[in-house]
Amino acid sequence: MNTMRLTESAVDTDIKITAKDVQVYYGDNHAIKDVSVEIQDKTVTAFIGPSGCGKSTFLRCINRMNDTIDVCRVQGDIKIDGEDIYDKRVDPVQLRAKVGMVFQKPNPFPKSIYDNVAYGPRIHGLAKNKADLDDIVERALRRGAIWNEVKDRLDAPGTGLSGGQQQRLCIARAVATEPEVLLMDEPCSALDPIATAQVEELIDELRKSYSVVIVTHSMQQAARVSQRTAFFHLGNLVEYGETGQIFTNPVDPRTENYITGRIG
């Protein structure tokens, strides 16, 4: 599977997200410097790099989660389907419905499994009636590859699930709003190897419907799940290209150093 993916080229070359000259500042700290990148649709794109290199920060720019941090300023253009998401007319609420996000630590709400998944559709008014909502929840849970484990206890609290189940629940919750892009911020860092394998399998499935962007600190994971990889270092986008090429034949010496374990 691995080797196959390494040689596999992108199925679809539509550009979903275009970022140009993006700068991010946390107060006086220049966290992201001049990042330009084009992310393809129906592709898994991995952001890798050492801790604090800005990969998560950049990810959070794509659905404007950085807006919730007072001291954070973003400059430059980020466009989804050609529309500038930092345009004044864009409501981050609508944007985030389109660009879902899964976080590092599983964060189910202290509600039932059903309510966790139904939360997004409810606030966005996606369901016409209760039966419709039931459908959406079931579809999302199936897509999150967790339906079989929880279908008998949809009323149980989401916080009672195991770590891996919680993260898959969160993924199901994110896909329930029918996003076009799914951002994943180190989704497996809090999970054990078995749960990680399950989530990775799921990511591969999700690629068929969404443009998936995943931040990971594990190079193996990036190699396993992604088609394209971007390497960040000290706030700069050092190298971006086919995953196979980045891992086997990096252009930049910094990328090579990181991949071979000399920096990180």
Partner: peptide, 27 residues
């Protein structure tokens, strides 16, 4: 997993236009 590809076709909406629901939620 049953038909993960069977995504209902949601009409692509522009981010630049606020839909009525969002406006209500913002109010």
């Amino acid at each position: 997993m049953s038909n993960p590809d069977q995504t209902p076709a949601v009409a692509k909406t522009s981010l630049l236009k606020l839909d009525a629901r969002t406006r209500k939620r913002n109010a």
